[in-house]
Each structure stands twice: as C-alpha cells, then as structure tokens.
Simulated scan of single mutants.
Amino acid sequence: MTAVSVGDEIAAREFPISRADLVRYAGASGDFNPIHWNERFAKSVGLPDVIAHGMFTMATAIRVVTDWTGDPGAVLEYSVRFTRPVVVPDPDGATLTVGGSVRSIREDGLLEVDLTATVDGQTVLAKARAVVRPPRTG
C-alpha cells in the first residue's frame, strides 16, 4: 500500500442486516428491547417496523475502517450522530452502505476519517468520524 493522502477514499461496502443478525446482537449485548425483534411491538410504538440496535449499526459501519487498516486496534476514537433508524423488514432485511475518506492527517501521523452510512440512499449516521493509525503496509 502506498502512503495515505488527504482525500483518499475508503471503498464503500454493503452490509446486509437481517432479523437474525439483530437477535444474535441482542444475545451478545443483552439488549432485548422488543423494538429490535418484534414487528408487532415496534409498530405499536410508532416505528415503521423492527429497527437495528444503534450500537449494532455503529459497529457495522466502522468495519470499513478496520478492514482498510488491517487492524481493529487501529481505531483510537470513533463517534457518530444517529440520524434515522435502520429499519429491518422481514424477510429481506436492510443493506447498510458505508464508505469513507481521509479527512486529515495529524502532525502525529494519525488519520482523521469521515464515514458515510446510508440505507436506501438515506443517511443513517451523520458526523461519523474516526481517528485511526494508518493502514499496515506490506
């Protein structure tokens, strides 16, 4: 890999999200809120359908960066603003599309990366930014 420059793009990836993914995440996180698995309940509280956990969405989005750097430990800071829920209809699920670009290179060599995260062309995470060590070379 060559040196990283400001403006370099991180290739966009698509991440399918199914109801089964949400159930597995609920088990791992302990967050069994029925809005994440029970369609009837989700609709009864005004949601369009079951929605993905915010932290699941956030964790899925950062995968483009951890894959790009080759090291999950390279992510030193990460923040997002949730702009809309990721609706996960049955049986088709949803597809989260995530890409990024190098916003800046700090004096210490760390990279500031901006991410875009959309579902069906609509932004689901805004101000998604990470501070990371540069990708591994060789």
Rank of each mutant, 00 (worst) to 15 (best):
E77K: 11
L111I: 07
I17L: 14
Y78G: 06
E107L: 02
P85Q: 10
G121E: 11
V45E: 08
L111Q: 10
A28F: 14
S44W: 01
I51S: 05
G93W: 12
G7P: 05
A20E: 13
D71K: 04
H53C: 06
R81C: 03
A94R: 10
G73R: 12
V131Q: 08
G73W: 01
G30V: 10
R81M: 03
D31Q: 08
D31G: 12
L96I: 11
M55W: 09
R84P: 02
H36I: 00
P16R: 14
F41N: 05
I17Q: 05
T137S: 13
S44L: 01
F32E: 07
E39N: 07
V119F: 06
F82T: 00
E9S: 12
L125T: 07
A130Y: 00
L47T: 01
E14N: 11
V6K: 15
D21F: 02
H36F: 10
F82H: 06
A117F: 12
S29V: 11
A94N: 11
A11Q: 14
V4L: 05
E112A: 06
V80L: 07
V50Y: 04
V124C: 14
E39L: 00
A52K: 04
P135S: 12
G99P: 07
V86R: 08
S104N: 11
R133D: 05
V124T: 14
D120N: 14
E9C: 02
T83C: 03
S104M: 03
E39P: 00
H53M: 04
T83N: 02
D67V: 06
I10D: 07
L96N: 13
A20S: 12
A52D: 11
H53D: 11
T60G: 06
I51L: 01
T66L: 13
E39R: 14
E112W: 01
A20Y: 07
M55T: 11
